[in-house]
Each structure stands twice: as C-alpha cells, then as structure tokens.
Write a protein that binds this DNA or RNA. Structure first.
Length: 828
RNA sequence: GCCCGAGUGGCGGAAUGGUAUACGCGGUCGGCUCAAACCCGGCUGGUGGGAACACCUUGGGGGUUCGAAUCCCCCCUCGGGCACCA
C-alpha cells in the first residue's frame, strides 16, 4: 500500500487484466483493419515467425517494437493494418517428422496453435483475419504461379554446376546461406557438388538493386544498405581477351586494373572451370587432374583461409598478352574462383599480393610497371597498389596516376578490339532448389521428348504427396524422388502425353517469404496471388520490423521479387518497405541465449512472474530498439513497480471525465503538453526508450502534484496528465493502460482513443533557467522570466555576483546571447 | 585486408553545437513496521575542502568555435559484415 493510504484498490491485478482485455479486444475486433475506411492508411509489418515451438524472448522484443508504431498510428487516426502469419515450410518440421514418424504438417500446425495463444496473450494489436500459412495449398499455389511468371520471363532457369552442399541437411544451399563456409542453419562445413539446379536470375537486377537503394536511404539502417552493397559487390574495370596458343577462341579475363596489363606475367584459371579442362595441354593433363581432385576434396573453409598457402599447376600452354605480344604461362590455381568474373585472371604479381605470393612460390617473373616510390615488390615481397609513374608500359609510360592509366589502357584495348570497359558483380544467381520435402514443389515436369514443361496455371497447385516418417529421411536426393512418391512423380507430359516425371525438388523457403506481405492484403482470395487494388491502397509498407540477420537474405530476396513484380506489371513500385527497423537481440550475461550455455530465459516464465506489460516495457525501455538487451542488466520487477505507480495515479483522480482542464494546475499542464510533444516526436523517430523515460517523468511530476496537496485528486490537470500517461503507456503496456482508461471513466478501448496534440500555448514556461558562461565555463544558472530581450538577458547576467567574480574586472570583448537559455561572455 | 557502427558514472543509457551524466538499475541513508518484505522519501561522476566553493571528467592526441560528448584530422580499442572477389 502507498504511503497516502486509502480504501480503493491501489494496484491492478495483472493476470485478471490480461484475461479481461484479451477477450474484449477479440470480441470487439479492436485491431481489425477496415478495408473500406476513408482514413489515411498505414501498413505495419513484422517479419512473420517460423513456428518453431513457442514464442521466445527474441520474438517478444521484435513484436513489442512494431506494436508501438501500430498503436501510435491507430490513435493518431490512421487506418492501420498490422497482420500476422506463419512462415510454415522448412526443415525443422521435416526433421521432427522423421524423428516421430509423422507428417511435418502435424508438428508445424501444432506449434502454430501454441504460438498463436502466446501471441494473443502478448497483447499485440494484430489483425488475425488475414492470418496466412505459407504451407497452406491456398498459399503455395500462388508461390508456384509466381515461379511460372518468373520462368516465362526467363528469370527462372536450370543449370548444371558446382553448388554448395550441406552434408548434414542433405540439400544444396544458396550463397547467402553459406556463412563463413558453414551451413547457415546447422553450421556443418559446406562442400561442393555438381548438380542441375534451379536458379532465379537475381544477377540481372544487380544494378537496379544497387540504384534503388537511394530510395531506402532515408528509412533503412545504413548498415543494412552497406551489407547489401557489399554483397552485390560491384567492380568497375575491363574485360581483356588473351589468345591461347593452339586455341581458336581467346580467353577473356576481368580486371579492375587494366592499366597494369604490361606487368601481367602469367594467367590463372579456376581449376574447377570448364575453361581449365578445355585448354590444358596433354603433357600437363595428369598433373592437372590430380590437382583438381585435391581442390574438390578441400572444404570451403580451408580454401577461403587467408593463411592458405598458394597451390596451383602449370597447364603447359601459353597466352599472348594483347598489349605487348608477350608469351605468358597459364596456370590453374584455386585462388581463382570459377563463379566470379570469367573464372580466369591476368596475374600482375608486382601490384597484387595474391599474384605476388603465387609468383614467388612458383618462380614466375615479377615485373613492376608502376614506380610508387616504395620498395621493389621483388625485394619486399609486398605488392605495391598505390599511384605512381608508369614504367615498362609502352604507351602508358610517364603517366602518373591510376585514373588516366586505366582510361588510356581501356582506350587502347577498345581500339585494337582486344578488350573493353566492363562491370562485374559479386552477386550470383539465387539457387532456389532444395532436396527436401516440406516446401513448395517446383511446378515443372521433365519429359524425355519435350524437356522442361511448365505446369499450366490451370493445373496448379502441384500439391505435396502424403509422405511421413522414414519416407522423409535424407537419402541424398529429395524425398519426392524416392519410391514412396512414385505415384505422385510419374505423370504424363502435359504436351505430348509421354510418360514424364515431376521435378522432385522444392523451393527455398525464402521464396515463400518474398511475397507474403502482398498476400496479407487479400489472404483469402483464391482467384489471384494478390489483389492489385488492395496493394495500391496499402503499400508500400510504412514500417517493417525484423532482425538484421536477414540483411542479405530475405531483405535482398524480397527486394528482387518486388523489382520483378514491378516489371511484370503486378505492382507499381520497386521498393516495398519504406522504413526498416532492425531490433537487437535479447541476450543473457553477455552471450546469446542457447541451450548448450544453459543461459536461456523463458518468456512464459517472465510473463507469469511480472506480466506482459512489464516484460514489454522492459524490452522497450532497456536500450535503443536496434541495440541488444542483456537480460542480466534489466529489471522486469521494477518495470512492474513503475506500472503500478502509474496505475495508482488513475485511482486518485476524482474529477469528472468532462472536467474543464483550463482551470487546472498550470505547471503540471505545461509538463503534460511538453511531454505530449516530446513523446509524439520520439515515437515517430523510433526512439522508444527515450519516450518511456518521458512517460516516467510525467508520472513523477503528477505524483508530486498529488502529494503536494490533498485536494489535487480533483484537479483536472491531474486527470489530463494521467489520461496521457495511460495513452502513452498503451503503446507498450496495453493491459494496464486499458485499466487506467476505464478507471478514468472513459469507454474502452484506449486503442481507439484520440492521441492528443500538444497545446502550443502551454509549451513555454513562465520562467526559464538561463545559463551564464564566462569564457565557456558555466558561472551562473539564473531563473529568469521567459521572454527577456537580448539586452535584458545581458544586463541580468552581468549583474550576477558569481559572474562578476569570474570576470575579475576584465573588460568584455564580446557577449553572445542565445535566448532564452544562454548568455556567453568573452573577456579580453 | 576492405566496408559499416560504436566508445559517456558501478551498470543500461540521455544530451547531435549551448546546463554532460535525463530516465532507470544498483548502492546508501531515512520513514512506515514489534521486525522484515512491500511501499514512500532523500542522497549518489571524481578530487580537494568543515563549509561556501574550486578544479577535473564523455577512449587518447591535435584542430575549428565565444562555446565540442556532438564538427574536422590522426591514433587506440571493441562490435558487426564481407573476404584469395582479380
């Protein structure tokens, strides 16, 4: 009980409030968006969850953040759509199904029920009427339809090449899913396999994806944009053709330094490229094949290691340097990648460290062509890469900077038709096939006569067959290629009727998640993937919220999808997410929570102990949204204490709901309106932790007013302050906010209340604290009436004893006045 | 190696050119209590001083400015991303 005592209940029953308001919101469809609304619309989107079990601390933080904005915008009078669904295809379900001898759907949809209950308890302002599951036939039919659109446009194709293979999950992986040479999901070292696989031609959009980042600069975190730029990896340089002795077609290399061509003393091709095989001399064949075998055995990690000693083999052929006619040897070495550029490079050992290391190991000629004034690379073993004067470079000799050297070299190559300016990207096409069952089947039939045949729109969906348990166990190929799926797989060719087979791979689940936010807008429409009119009405998304771990996965893929959908004429924008918030992680004792460390914190236990409101408040208040929260550093118990303290204000308000606020305590009213202004701005800027601090200050100020005078409970200013405390609090602590709202005598729900505008007349102050500096040091803090003139302020400042003492009779050189709060005096 | 971001009390953090350390945690002293928990209130960057007060303090060094945590240059440390990418 509080020190002032009283008969009314002074705290709220956390558990009872949670049950009561959940029911209320559900019954009244409080958070259901009105599709026919005439209000301005806002679309708040959280990255949809994978139904892995129950809601955990990480979800709790992410969803708390999105809800703050959704709730603010709703109260500000926008029609807010805040949907939710399930990214319900994926490997964990399949693994669980194998273990239990079940169908993956059972595990998946069971988890969804559990998680859904937790979501509802968590008090999020979600519209459940558009709930979707990517594993529902009604959804994945349209994933297949979209694949077909991509295919028809030439953006989905199959090719045979070395691909990333996870030996544990027994499936291929996209480049984006290989992190440091390990499988993103299970951390097994990734190996290479040669397979025919489906790809999306994301490389065709490399430049567009770079260019359109300009639109995102205002609303996306800089680090995400940087990561995407880095990942796309644009390099500007030139293509140069080298004739190979004894071969008709020249080999093209890509280089960023065509100006160093005169120093190219050998050429290197990737051992696992077709090119190496094609040009290898008979005399070198045996050595080459032994080397290739060795390269294939080594893991990605080994190969990528910077410590890795250079290896390679002489292919026994010579190339002709197009600028000086010099014969240079051609080597195969694994430091050249088959997939990047053309799979072949010109090596300039004097000015590239990798080439220098290689040349020194194998005794190949090193010839500097730029004199940078540094030690000769032949002596130092350190390649020089800076600007300098060109030497040994024919027509470039005497030039002194890289820029003109590069330009001159390209001009020369173009004139003799042996090369041209070129741009290369690091980004590779998106490998979308997966050798697993619980995913969206690729709607293609392979016919011995007709080849690849796309399943017609009228034949969609291609439904998954009913496989379970051991049928799904990894056998090196997709379960859909196994005996149990024979009946599903063997179908007549839609073209010629001959016996044919369905494609047995399923799509990467990132395909599913690249378009779910369009589907929310017409989730139950079985005539189209999404309704263009609804997309026009609601999109782009105003705020997207999710983890930064998707910076170059989902967030790149969904951008690519949007570009294609735009080119297909299905949407009229390129960038679907205007603002992006990457919330931090919840960690414990400095480390990510994990089972092996045993430092996990269970969300359900926290909620049972402190309530939803306190947990959410803790999440939001602990740090800026994008920073990690260490649960060891926070105190949900004190969050609850604060909520009870706020609640208590409402129990002490005795004025009528329609009381005339203009008669209220002016000081408190000023604090309230300043707080309204500050919180409105802070929340809009995503500075939620600071906004909460402001709520706390308003609670403190209101408490002081109440404690100062026993009659303050009847003061309408106290009601006004408390009312705003409830509204601001409702952004993070919706249950206690509803309780307060009811106690104040207003009709629920507070979520539909009108967010106040600050009264401009109340933003000023009668008096302000004016700081007086002498030589930049604060010498006095004076309480003066607001609205002094500069001359008056100066006069008051110079009269202050502390200021006089600090001036010590020195004459004044300058006085700078910044009204209303500062006077800076500069003595001579 | 390249690219981003960050360094502020014992801790999370606030202040983005104008009162450094808001708000909270922790601590401490006091009130309530037979007692304790809860709750309520005060104090809480450092050094010197009995006090008034003075000086110092935003990773380090330099600069711009009447005034710098904030802007500029150099360096250090930490976190993240990419990485034999030609």
């Amino acid at each position: 009980m509080g020190s002032t005592g009283g008969d009314e209940p002074r705290t709220y029953d956390v558990e009872a409030a949670q049950v009561k308001w959940q029911q209320f919101w559900e019954r009244n469809a409080t958070f259901q968006a009105d599709r026919n609304s005439t209000k301005e619309r806002r679309y708040v989107l959280d990255m949809f969850p994978y139904p892995s079990g129950d809601l955990h601390m990480g979800h709790a933080e992410a969803y708390a953040m999105g809800d703050v904005l959704a709730r603010l915008w709703r109260m500000q009078g926008y029609e807010v759509l805040h949907p939710i669904g399930w990214d319900s295809f994926g490997l964990p379900a399949e693994n669980a199904a194998i273990k239990m001898g079940e169908h993956p759907a059972k595990w998946t949809y069971g988890n969804i029920e559990t998680q859904k209950t937790s979501f509802k308890r968590y008090g999020l302002s979600l519209d459940w009427t558009t709930e979707l599951h990517t594993s529902d036939v009604g959804y994945y039919k349209w994933t297949q339809w979209l694949f077909a659109q991509f295919y028809k446009r030439g953006l989905a194709y199959r090719k045979n090449s070395f691909v990333n293979w996870c030996p544990k999950d027994q499936t291929v992986l996209a480049n984006e899913q290989v992190v440091g040479g390990l499988c993103e999901r299970c951390h097994t070292p990734v190996t290479k396999r040669r397979l025919s696989q489906w790809y999306f031609k994301i490389t065709e959009y490399a430049q567009a994806l770079l260019d359109d980042m300009e639109q995102l600069e205002a609303g996306w975190p800089e680090r995400v944009l940087a990561m995407q730029r880095n990942w796309i990896g644009r390099s500007v340089g030139a293509h140069v053709d080298f004739v190979i002795e004894g071969h008709a077609t020249p080999v093209t290399v890509f280089t960023t330094r065509p100006d160093t061509l005169w120093g190219a003393t050998f050429m290197v091709v990737a051992p696992d490229s077709e090119l190496a095989d094609a040009i290898c001399a008979d005399s070198a064949r045996a050595a080459f094949e032994a080397y290739l075998e060795r390269v294939k055995q080594s893991s990605e990690i080994e190969r990528q290691s910077t410590e890795h000693e250079k290896t390679g083999v002489d292919l026994g052929v010579y190339a002709i340097n197009p600028v000086n006619g010099e014969r240079i040897p051609v080597w195969a070495a694994d430091y050249v990648l088959a997939e990047y550029g053309t799979g072949a490079i010109m090596a300039v050992p004097a000015h590239d460290q990798r080439d220098l290391d290689f040349a020194r190991k194998f005794g190949i000629l090193v010839r500097p062509v730029i004199d940078t004034g540094e030690v000769d690379p032949r002596e130092s073993g350190v390649a020089t890469t800076g600007d300098g004067v060109y030497i040994n470079s024919g027509p470039l000799d005497g030039l002194a900077d890289k820029k003109s050297g590069v330009a001159k070299a390209i001009e020369l190559l173009e004139a003799q038709h042996t090369g041209a300016a070129a741009i290369t990207y690091r980004l590779r096409d998106w490998l979308l096939s997966r050798q697993r069952f619980w995913g969206c089947p690729i709607p293609v039939i392979h016919c011995p006569n007709c080849g690849e045949v796309l399943v017609g729109d009228d034949q969609l969906p291609v439904e998954l067959p009913d496989l379970r348990g051991d049928d799904l166990a990894p056998k090196g190929v997709s379960p859909l290629a196994g005996a149990a799926a024979a009946a599903w797989r063997n179908v007549p060719c839609p073209n010629c009727g001959a016996p044919a087979e369905r494609d047995t791979d399923t799509m990467d689940t990132f395909v599913d998640s690249s378009w779910y936010f369009y589907r929310y807008l017409s989730a139950n429409d079985d005539t189209q993937a999404f309704n263009p009119a609804e997309v026009r009405a609601w999109m782009p998304v105003d705020q997207y919220v999710g983890g930064v771990e998707h910076a170059i996965l989902h967030l790149l893929y969904m951008r690519f999808f949007a570009h294609v959908l735009h080119d297909l004429g299905l949407i009229d924008f390129n960038e679907p997410m205007q603002r992006l918030l990457n919330q931090g992680q919840v960690i414990n004792q400095g480390k990510a929570m994990s089972k092996s460390l045993g430092n996990g914190v269970d969300l359900g236990t926290q909620i049972d102990a402190y309530g939803v409101d306190a947990v959410r408040l803790t999440m939001v208040f602990a740090s800026p949204p994008e920073d990690d929260i260490d649960w060891a550093d926070v105190s949900p118990a004190s969050s609850l204490k604060f909520l009870q303290r706020a609640y208590r204000l409402a129990t002490e308000v005795t004025s009528a709901p329609d009381a005339d606020v203009s008669t209220g305590n002016l000081e408190l009213r000023r604090v309230t309106h300043r707080t309204i202004k500050a919180i409105t701005e802070l929340v809009a800027m995503g500075r939620f932790n600071v906004a909460v601090a402001r709520i706390m200050e308003l609670v403190n100020a209101t408490r002081k007013t109440l404690d100062a005078d026993a009659r303050s409970g009847a003061d309408p200013a106290v009601r006004e302050a408390t009312q705003f405390v409830a509204q601001a609090l409702s952004l993070v602590a919706p249950y206690v906010a509803e309780e307060m709202w009811e106690l104040l005598g207003y009709a629920p729900s507070i979520a539909n209340s009108h967010w106040p505008e600050p009264d401009a007349a109340l933003l000023g102050n009668e008096t302000v604290v004016m700081v007086v500096q002498v030589q930049g040091k604060v010498r006095a803090k004076l309480e003066v009436p607001d609205g002094l003139t500069e001359a008056e302020a100066t006069e008051v400042a110079l009269a202050d004893p502390a200021v006089i003492r600090a001036l010590d009779d020195r004459p004044i050189a300058k006085v700078i006045v910044r009204l209303p709060k500062l006077v800076s005096i500069v003595p001579q």
